[in-house]
Design a protein around this nucleic acid. Sequence first.
DNA 1: TTTAGCACTGTTAGTAATTGAGTGCTAAAA
DNA 2: TTTTAGCACTCAATTACTAACAGTGCTAAA
Lengths: 349, 349
Amino acid sequence: MRQVSESILKERKSRVLHAVIHEYIKTGKPVGSSALEKSYKFNLSPATLRSLMAELERDGYLTHPHTSAGRIPTDAGYRAYVDSLIELQRLAVEEEDRIKKEYEKKTKEIDSLLSQTSKILSGLSNYTGFVMAPKAKHNEIRNIELIQISGEQILVVLLTKTGLVKHKMINICIDSEDLYELKQFLNNRLRGLSLEDAAKRIIVEVQKYQSKQQEMFKLAGYIGNVIESIQDDIYMNGASNVLGLPDFNDFETARCLMNLNEHKDRLIEIVGQNLEVPNIKVQIGGECSSELKDLSVITTSYSDGNKTVGVLGIIGPKRMEYEKMMALVNSVSKIVNGFLLKMGEDNDD
Amino acid sequence: MRQVSESILKERKSRVLHAVIHEYIKTGKPVGSSALEKSYKFNLSPATLRSLMAELERDGYLTHPHTSAGRIPTDAGYRAYVDSLIELQRLAVEEEDRIKKEYEKKTKEIDSLLSQTSKILSGLSNYTGFVMAPKAKHNEIRNIELIQISGEQILVVLLTKTGLVKHKMINICIDSEDLYELKQFLNNRLRGLSLEDAAKRIIVEVQKYQSKQQEMFKLAGYIGNVIESIQDDIYMNGASNVLGLPDFNDFETARCLMNLNEHKDRLIEIVGQNLEVPNIKVQIGGECSSELKDLSVITTSYSDGNKTVGVLGIIGPKRMEYEKMMALVNSVSKIVNGFLLKMGEDNDD
DNA sequence: TTTAGCACTGTTAGTAATTGAGTGCTAAAA
DNA sequence: TTTTAGCACTCAATTACTAACAGTGCTAAA
């Protein structure tokens, strides 16, 4: 009996927490006891709500901007709220259809798929959308082309299984027959390897040529460098959306957001941590990085059918409609999954 | 006699204007008559300076934020100031050396040259640097490669004389011999044409094939689309620098800057206007675009040895050290000229 | 356990007084 | 004729004070 009544109390307390956060997200103003009583049917008086809120404050979920103000959620409060949204609210069907329609102009290249996805995320959320491309190092090589541009310029074009295309110009004098031979050789030995492995392998493989053909060796070495230097890529859109938010008046955060936009590597570092996380992950305030202390990040990973290859999500204010945004991120990731799967199948011929 | 004394007066007036602007740029606060008297040796009393400033205000070069405040420059004031900086102050030699050193990690690819240049501009100015790539449509085709990836995927790689490389995946089933033939054909007919002309020509040229080979015709058409869809590119860095400026507290401008960062096409539109302008050009306030009403843009064009091909410069606050920045933009453009010239020569073998 | 009542607290907004930097104007000095 | 000193004036910025108000915590009664 004690058990039951205790759990009912707990249940009610958490309902109050939810209500406060929900209301705060909606209005942006600290939530007072009477406002709560009016907007939600607890059948409790403001006084009771007050004491419950005081408890929640003691527990660390709510806080006061000052004595005579209503409550606002702490990061821990948001966290508890988000954690309890276990069952992701599915987007209404027509909503999901709308997203799919956005993809109508479909493409076979992963670049544009991802950059489009980032735009869609930003457009539908009205926050900042991002998509991190499949981890470069894990990409498997599909093709290496060596194109002789002039007597001393070679264009290296690298194509991976996920559809990534990279190119780099190299200055070297090399005989066109040697070039052809090298190309065959590289393709035979490297196809199917991850970029990481390929870069290592190329050094080993090419030793055999060293004595035979100085220039070929050199070129192969360069190509190794090219492969090694391929960086992870990330697409980001809608940073200005967040700047435009009504309750956004902190220049520091603005600058930080702009910085992330300019230094993608830092952004990659931050969101890259979530690559191995299977579900939707919400990071509130400084949970992922102190720079983002006034923002929240919702991420999920996407896969190519076999394993997770990248991360996508949105960055928005802490005061955000988590349910909706989580559902959005979830939906988009599923759609991307679908596309990648199809692209993979098409490539397997 | 009257003439001479009049010109002396004018001379003095303009010295006052310069002093006010200079001081305002330094301090960021409205400049009063006594502050002026202290910091600059006019050998005039505050009262006299006051009346001179009043004249300058009547002439439209200065203004008052309010009755009892000092003077700040109007856009026209800045304009007169900038116009009078005819003789560009040369950067100190060691400064110029420093810039050159930044380019040490030299590369043959225009992409990285330009993106590096933009970073250098931003780094040395502490404002926003940008470099607009050579006008896409005017680029001359150097090479078209068609690489068969799988039975139904062709990777088109396009290389221009300025070193631009673009690629695009196309889905089509085509015989590899036909592919080779098409490649030869395209290279013969399109090499040396501008992208603009090439896109037009391809449609004409390919008609002949139409009856003969349906698929080849289709592919050529696609390639035409690819060529046509190549957009101008622009590199931009250091927008967050501007956001961090002490006297920068206007969210609207921040958002605008961020928008430009995200919608490069708009930025291209704005700075592209200055492609045909030979010298350093300074646009103050809304002179180039109403969005930038609180910023100034310093641009100059750069050339590949024959003709101007692109634009580079910096975006900063109106209150900016124009002399120094103009010198910087000037130096950098000269260095880029040098590189492009060298790249062009290397390519002419 | 819940609630009404009440004293208390801190923010906000509004008003008034004060200060100070800087102006324009005028009349005297150079 | 030009420059300067002097003075009255203006307006933003600061400070101080007040009243209104929203919301709390606590207590005692339901």
